[in-house]
Amino acid sequence: MSTRQDRRVKFASSAVQVGFLVGLMALWYLGTAYWGVSHLLLPDPVKVWHELEDVLSTGEYLPDLQVTLTELAIAFAISCTSGVTLGYLISRSPYMIKVFEPLLAGIYSVPIILFLPLYVLFFSLGPGSKIAIGTTISFFPIVLNTIAGFGYVDRIFIIAARSMGASDLQMFRYVLLPAALPVILTGLRIGFIIALLSILGSETIASLAGLGHKIVHLAEAMETARMFAYIAFVVAIAATLNTIASALERRAQRQ
């Protein structure tokens, strides 16, 4: 009875979404073209589009993109290996979990971005400080989720496998790992995303190169149209990486 009504609601809600986006674009265009909003504050959308085309066709973004992605890759590789290894070691005994988990969760609740000035002092303005902050911030969700994954496997499974004579390796491969993997993967995805965000953020605050640096540079030069183009580009990159990470997580969890 309600499929028809359902379809109507669905149609109406998509119409609202499309209308919202179209309205926003129209407001943007009208505001800049006719109502005289300052071009320094809000460039006109056509100009932004041309700038975006220019940025993409000249390949001007490549050096900065490379810097940011390299920082991200190194930071994630370090936090991934150290987080999963430490998490596994801690999860081996309930006592260790009780000692270390509240400690790690406590440190995680401090906004780690506060340590950025300190990291700049230690590792200089270059990629070093970005890698360090990305690693620190992404380490915590990874290690906490690894502990949660390995530490809270249903005891019935472990007892059953052991009573059927599973070796340590078999236990790890067929019981612990499949049970823990979904939780660990969620931790890895969260870690990856916040590593990206914190690297972009620290590039914005103090850096020599990278996408965040480029945006700030353009903002300080008052080239707002080009800055908008770069913002769109970075948002698209972040959305793509986010989608890939979520898709990988879902695919691995299904198996």
């Binding site: 504050l41 990206l196 965000l197 972009l200 953020g201 945006i215 707002t224 970075v234 972040a238 986010n242």
Partner: peptide, 15 residues
């Protein structure tokens, strides 16, 4: 919610 707000931090300062 999903868009990284850090990228538009300079805009907040501008506005």
């Amino acid at each position: 919610y999903g868009t990284p707000q850090v990228t538009i931090l300079p805009l907040f300062i501008l506005y």
